[in-house]
């Protein structure tokens, strides 16, 4: 099929020219990947095009880039899935990380965040002579997370990292989960404490982007949510995120809907006066524009049904926990 590949070029050695789009027209097989196309361009047409790639089979994690606006591995993205015959594919470097040249980004930020979660197994006590015993189900569960190839697609498209570089981010948090959920690791408490701080698990906005773009099905956001549960269970509840979760649950279980008036107050902590004060300008602006929630919070009709639902969900969770 005939396609046009439009590549976002950037050469730091050419100080005059900012980044620009360059179009390449080429003929490719139906089964070709976007990477095949880029390699064809590099080998046959333009040797100055810079990109990282190696394995061609979605295991080395080198070729994460934005294809038609979303982070993907170029090697396992079929041309025919992103363009029609005669169509155009837009290829850009991964987001969030600074560009070195063309499609090559500087991943220092990515690895700094990984290093931040002490990403190595930390067992306590004496090492056994043979292997640690562990259930196969735990290991296969962890395999779903270890499948992460550190390509950085999730970091590229993380909507929080785009705004707040302090966020540990999806890949590193998934990595943290891999240790927190490993039965051989004994540092759960210190790991969960650190992850409950600013920049940690509570800073995820649950936008789902990382789950969507992950080429290996690691589902980083689901791991972040699992870490939240574990952190709360372990008693790390003295933070906005955990309080917000509790307030949310309390409000819905009580009245069947959110009490938006008390939610922020409870989330910051009732006694956290500086934080409460900082909300005042927002509250005043809301009041002026008549967007204040009702002062008297009423239950939804049939709230009993909601409460029954909440109860049955809780029972289910308890059964699951008891089952292991």
């Amino acid at each position: 099929m005939q396609i046009t590949v439009s590549v976002r070029r950037y050469n730091p050695q050419d100080k005059e020219t900012p980044s620009y789009w360059q179009e390449y027209s080429l003929e490719v097989e139906e089964t070709s990947s976007v990477l095949d196309s880029l390699i064809k361009i590099r080998e046959e047409e333009d040797g100055s095009l810079a990109l990282r790639c190696s394995c061609r089979s979605a295991i080395c994690g080198s070729c994460a880039m934005r294809i038609n606006g979303h982070a993907k591995l170029a090697c396992n993205t079929k041309v025919s899935d992103v363009a029609e015959d005669g169509g155009t594919i837009k290829v850009e470097p991964a987001g969030v990380m600074p560009v070195i040249k063309d499609l090559v980004v500087d991943q220092t930020l990515f690895w700094d965040k990984v290093k931040q979660v002490s990403p190595w197994l930390q067992p306590e006590g004496e090492e056994p002579e043979a292997e640690y015993l562990a259930p196969n189900s735990d290991m296969t569960h962890l395999a779903g997370v270890m499948a992460c190839i550190m390509c950085g697609a999730c970091v590229s498209d993380c909507t929080v990292l785009e705004m707040d570089p302090n966020f540990i981010g999806p890949a590193a948090l998934a990595k943290a989960y891999r240790f927190a959920a490993d039965p051989r690791d004994d540092q759960d408490a210190s790991r969960l404490a650190a992850l409950s701080e600013y920049g940690g698990v509570w800073d995820c906005t649950r936008c789902y982007e990382c789950v969507e773009v992950c080429p290996k099905g690691v589902a980083p956001m689901d791991r972040i949510m699992a870490l939240r549960d574990r952190a709360m269970e372990a008693g790390y509840t003295n933070n906005n995120g955990a309080r917000h979760t509790d307030a949310f649950e309390a409000s819905v279980s009580h009245s069947g809907r959110l009490n938006e008036l008390t939610l922020p107050i409870k989330s910051f902590g009732v006694l956290n006066l500086p934080a409460q004060m900082s909300m005042a300008p927002v509250a005043i602006r809301a009041l002026m524009r008549r967007k204040i929630p009702p002062i008297i919070h009423k239950s939804v009709p049939g709230v009993k049904n909601v409460r029954r639902l909440v109860e049955s969900v809780k029972e289910e969770q308890q059964d699951e926990q008891a089952a292991g």
Binding site: P123, A130, Y132, N136, A143, M146, D182, R184
Partner: peptide, 19 residues
Amino acid sequence: IDLEHMGVIFNRDDEGRLG
């Protein structure tokens, strides 16, 4: 065994040993 102790998540048998 060294690799396992470092953290490799080898598949296990029914007794939880390396499979």
